[in-house]
Design a protein around this nucleic acid. Structure first.
Lengths: 148, 148
DNA sequence: CAGGATCCCGCTAGATACTG
DNA sequence: CAGTATCTAGCGGGATCCTG
């Protein structure tokens, strides 16, 4: 079942790096991790300031956000998914987690340079979904009535 | 639980369109659909020709691919997931499905303009995963040994 | 406040078998 | 060739309770 085309094997052997088309390639698992609703929303949130405060005077740049801020912005996310996703992002080096030992404790998250390099695409993904929602809705209706 | 911040409500009411940060917004579901390993790989495959044939003389442009070609390129994908994902992409207007009534039947898939507008980001996502795999791997090891 | 720990359900990916 | 149909194990993910 782990079939590989000659082209794929060639690319792998050439040391060209990774190829997500190949089943066993670690980059496929990574692609799976980052292809995730919560990852997209968290990165989109951490990357742009004004996503949270449209009226804010400061320009929109990468910004540290607190756990509760994220929870509020990403409406409907469970603590479990939020914590779990943030952990995996931290482990992968996409965000930093900073604990300030106040009482109660204060925890903030911020994009790393690596995370910032992914932010652009995630922001784009979110923007695409919002921009083409009507298009997609229209296509769905057409598709569904066609089958009726 | 369906809490919405004032900023979010403002953006919604303003008719600014959709906002995936809002739980009930349809664009969040759409984001969920397209944030998917198989969606990314299928779009990446349909968008670039040379992903399949690196030695091909023709330039890499959008291209129609047959079901079996996709199955071969996306190593390890089950027929179920491939068919299911292609159907949803077709329903959303991202790909077209063309049946040529030969025997046996020939079915090919091709990106629509809408699909093409998403291809860029999907290709970027896949490329990002491949390009930063080593970075991520290093971060993970550091993170894990730190906890040991 | 920012989680950790548990329980548990639903769904969905994957494997297998069959078909026009 | 390009699917459809069916079954099942596994886990994604929500709800709930608890804590430093």
């Amino acid at each position: 079942m782990a079939r590989v085309t000659a082209a794929q094997r060639r690319e792998q052997d050439a040391g060209a790096g990774y190829n997500a088309f190949v089943e066993a390639c670690p980059s496929r698992k990574l692609l799976d991790r980052i292809s995730n609703k919560w990852v997209a929303l968290i990165l989109a949130a951490l990357g742009s300031d004004d996503a949270h405060q449209p009226d804010s005077a400061c320009a929109g740049g990468p910004r540290a956000m607190r756990y509760s801020e994220l929870a509020r912005l990403l409406a409907g996310v469970s603590q479990k998914m939020l914590t779990q996703t943030l952990r995996s992002l931290e482990r992968d080096g996409l965000v930093t987690r900073t604990v300030v030992p106040t009482v109660p404790v204060t925890v903030s998250y911020e994009l790393t340079d690596l995370g910032l390099s992914l932010y652009g695409m995630m922001r784009g993904l979110k923007a695409w979904a919002e921009a083409h929602m009507d298009d997609v809705l229209a296509h769905r209706e057409a598709y569904d009535t066609r089958l009726a």
